[in-house]
Design a protein around this nucleic acid. Structure first.
Lengths: 193, 193
DNA sequence: ACCTGAACACCGTTCAAGT
DNA sequence: ACCTGAACACCGTTCAAGT
């Protein structure tokens, strides 16, 4: 990439970050281009879709979340590891209003620029879930996709102005449904009595 | 209202119902007007907002859901009454793709044409919840707004193509979090040990 | 009273024309 | 190579002009 193009790209990205922080991920791309003093067509050549722009903007965050999951996999309590990671995931999305809808669309759309990141995230959660299930700390009748869906639902709640105040509490409610309440002493299965 | 206006209104409503069933509640109002062979401005004078159109279209359903809640209030099991009503609510939204977002916005927007219906619905749920809590069948640390939020989250899941297949299962998961598992024999409180 | 075409200010997409 | 204005097909809002 030519130096001036690189500079243009970086500038658009910085402006996009500010605009999204202010107005959410559905902010008009035209607006971002205007704020960046760049033609709309230029923005779209660097980032052909809204998802591509977001991927460039969020891939660091995605990496951090999966790294966190990896680190937690060797932590003492599988139960605490799972819950703390879930909390991080849900909390992270609140910084990007509206991102949840795009992520749920992306996880089954292999053409989406966000697809790979979402799949990786789901896999990271699935590993923590499996580990918690193995010690009987999490119910056995859910899988990584269910977990992804629950995270998405909680994140979506936080995105809705009228319900956001309940998001933290309802996180605990849903977390209690995922966990069995059993301590990590035995290895018994759970979920089907 | 003049007879021809009434006829126009009814026709628009019928066409809107079909269009929404096909494309979801975000269908273009221009499209509805075109399909109804009516000027867009005419549609907007009968229904000044998308919410007003939906209210006219859904108020029967809202009435049915609250009536159902009233009927269930005198049923045998407070626990079964609550869960079955929740299931009805979530199931109903699947007929109107995208309606959940509008409803969550409406419940705190007193200007919205959907506001009253949403508030009534929440109150109906709250009554069933309180009754279940009174016999210790539902956890005591949630209220009608929490319940509304959980319904909305589950309904939203059903709206997402990539997650819809899990919606039924996750309904059971969340329902298990709301219920305490205690049978309706004592009157003990629950939630804060 | 009721209806409507048209103008308006937006949006994202596309592409021929510039440097 | 890279950029951009302009045309395009949409959207919901508004209103002067018709019947």
């Amino acid at each position: 990439m030519r130096a001036d193009a690189r500079k243009n790209r970086d500038h658009v990205l910085a402006v996009a970050g500010a605009a999204i922080a202010e107005h959410g991920v559905d902010v008009s791309l035209r607006d971002i281009a205007r704020r960046a003093d760049v033609g709309l067509a230029t923005l779209l050549r660097h980032f052909p879709t809204r998802e591509a722009l977001l991927e460039a903007l969020l891939h660091t965050s995605f990496d951090e979340l999966t790294a966190k999951a990896d680190a937690l996999e060797t932590s003492g309590s599988p139960e605490d590891a799972l819950v703390s990671w879930l909390r991080d995931c849900v909390g992270w999305t609140t910084e990007y209003r509206g991102v949840t809808v795009l992520m749920t669309a992306a996880i089954e759309d292999t053409e989406s620029a966000l697809h790979a990141s979402c799949v990786t995230l789901r896999a990271a959660g699935a590993r923590l879930l499996t580990r918690a299930q193995a010690v009987g700390a999490a119910r056995g009748d859910i899988d990584g996709t269910d977990l992804f869906a629950l995270i998405a639902a909680l994140a979506w709640l936080g995105d809705q102005p009228s319900l956001a105040s309940r998001a933290d509490h309802l996180f605990d409610v849903v977390a209690s449904a995922i966990l069995t309440g059993a301590t990590a002493s035995g290895g018994g299965a759970e979920g089907s009595p």
